[in-house]
Design a protein around this nucleic acid. Structure first.
Length: 213
DNA sequence: CGCCAGGGCCATA
DNA sequence: TATGGCCATGGC
């Protein structure tokens, strides 16, 4: 495979244009959305967010019971576990007065370790939060990234962090670039690499080399 | 009707 | 460390 990861990024950016993510009205909504979207279509997350909107502040959500929260986010699926995870996240966020600015001061690795200690926040969710709420440049490894690179011919049967390190080694650790790269991969996946078994006419490299795993 | 979606935890070996 | 079961809705 001659194309490097930066070259893929350039092609995506040229084709789809600047994405300017995350799709949320506030950093807090973004943080909640990152939990709601775990193994769930964004469509369903939007439905949950519509119902949650009138109560979308840390104080209001902390005041409701886990069951009340679960009822509101029902359309996103896994609502019981997600309500618990949001509660766990807020208990930690409270220690910093619910202020994103207080957390941006932290070192990327330190903040990542703290997020990973919260029950319900795994690597991908932590990295998405770091990138889109805490302004930390990091490459987000998600199902789309795995699928797209695999189809383009890259072999990536490796752990989350191994995958991430490989990408970060070849890319500038730049906030704008990491933000765009993840958003562009999602956009590309929505348009061209859904669940059809063969990717025909992929505009990224003219062809896709492989079938879906 | 069955399959899948922008994961993560937990038990088990 | 690496699998498998589990969580659950809505779109297609």
């Amino acid at each position: 495979m001659s194309e490097n990861y930066y070259g893929i990024y350039e092609k995506l950016l040229e084709r789809y244009g600047t994405q300017s993510w995350w799709p949320a009205d506030s950093p807090f909504e973004m943080l909640i959305g990152s939990i709601l979207v775990q193994n769930t279509s964004w469509r369903n997350v939007e439905k949950a967010l519509v119902q949650l909107k009138p109560f979308l502040s840390p104080d209001q959500i902390e005041r409701m019971t886990q069951e009340e929260l679960a009822r509101l986010i029902r359309p996103s699926g896994f609502f019981n576990v997600k309500a618990k995870r949001i509660k766990a996240f807020l208990a930690w966020f409270r220690l910093y007065d619910y202020k994103v600015e207080n957390l941006k001061k932290k070192d990327r690795e330190e903040l990542r370790d703290q997020l990973l200690r919260i029950n319900g926040i795994g690597r991908e969710t932590a990295d998405v939060m770091l990138l889109y709420a805490f302004d930390k440049p990091i490459f987000v490894v998600d199902a789309y990234a795995r699928r797209i690179f695999y189809r383009l011919g890259y072999n990536m049967p490796i752990s989350y962090d191994e995958f991430r390190f490989i990408l970060e080694k070849e890319l500038p650790l730049d906030l704008f670039l990491m933000n765009e790269y993840h958003a562009l991969l999602v956009e590309h996946a929505k348009v061209h690499c859904k669940s059809n078994p063969i990717c025909n006419g992929c505009p990224l490299l003219d062809i896709c080399a492989r079938r879906l795993e």
